[in-house]
């Protein structure tokens, strides 16, 4: 029970980093990044590979953020200039490329066998949970500050009307690339923290299922609201974990199916009764 609660909160803190950073791109800048989890996976693999090759975690952790952020920057730089939703499509494409690479570049990733034995950052799970809390807190404080800064307001102006922002002298292209770079940097950080927590990763980390969960958390919490994202993550995580508590003698597959049904139910109720989510500032 105690261990289980620690795990629930460890995941909550990782999800908070993921959802708040997705909110930066999607909610605050209007860039729907369907490949957000691919950057999470890239960060996880980067950190796993670096530490398995003897690099200390305190270098691997920021490095995995930088690697994921660099991928994000390059993809954004190529696609956000184009009209339409090319960014979304290419970012989703990256997810598939990442799956293919993680499966088939056997010498690097061991393919479907995955990477076991990723070293812990902190052995004790409770203290690691506190460490995750600290990193999540730092990330949230930074992103809160950013979204309220001049730059953050320009992100929001671009979301509302890119043309109007441009004729007011804003280089909207650069701001969009910046938003995606920061957003994917944090996705990479979350991936690294995750890899060191469960100590084993394989290509299933890129599964779309994850993305559906964080998207639901984002929408339930509300777009363009950081406190909404934190609440969305917490409420959904606790509800999903509660299922395993209430139904103790049910097979894992059934639990999984029930969790998905619950998730869809929550999402449906929110979209019907509170289309802006719990704390949302803009329409979905």
């Amino acid at each position: 029970m105690y261990e289980y609660l620690i795990a629930v909160f460890a995941y909550i803190f990782i999800y908070i980093i993921l959802v708040v950073s997705l909110n930066l791109a999607f909610g605050f800048t209007g860039l729907v990044n369907l490949g957000h989890m691919a950057f999470f996976g890239v960060g996880a693999y980067a950190s796993a590979l670096l530490t398995l090759h003897g690099i200390p975690w305190y270098i691997a952790l920021p490095a995995s953020g930088l690697i994921a952020g660099s991928f994000g920057a390059v993809i954004a730089a190529i696609t956000v200039r184009l009209k339409g939703d090319y960014f979304q499509i290419v970012a989703l494409g990256l997810a598939f490329i990442a799956i293919a690479v993680s499966r088939n570049w056997i010498s690097l990733t061991r393919g479907a066998l995955g990477l076991p034995g990723i070293p812990d950052i902190i052995k004790n799970n409770f203290y690691y949970m506190l460490f995750l809390f600290a990193v999540a807190l730092l990330s949230v404080v930074f992103l809160y500050w950013l979204t309220n800064s001049e730059t953050g307001k320009i992100f929001q102006a671009i979301r509302d009307d890119e043309t109007a922002a441009a004729v007011l002298g804003k280089n909207t292209y650069l701001y969009k690339v910046l938003s995606i770079t920061i957003s994917t940097f944090f996705a990479g950080i979350a991936g690294s923290l995750f890899a060191h927590y469960i100590s084993f990763i394989d290509p299933t980390i890129f599964d779309l299922e994850f993305f559906v969960i964080i998207l639901a958390m984002l929408i339930v919490g509300g777009l363009a609201s950081i406190s909404g994202s934190i609440l969305g993550v917490t409420v959904i995580s606790l509800l999903l974990s509660a299922i395993s508590f209430v139904f103790t003698n049910i097979s894992p597959e059934l639990i999984g199916a029930m969790r998905q049904m619950l998730l869809m139910l929550i999402l449906l109720l929110i979209l019907i009764y509170r289309p802006r989510g719990m704390f949302g500032k803009v329409d979905v």
């Binding site: 979301r159 509302d160 009307d161 109007a164 922002a165 363009a224 500032k281």
Partner: peptide, 9 residues
């Protein structure tokens, strides 16, 4: 011609 404001700001 069709007013453009930042509607959520």
């Amino acid at each position: 011609q069709l007013t453009k404001v930042f509607r959520n700001l």
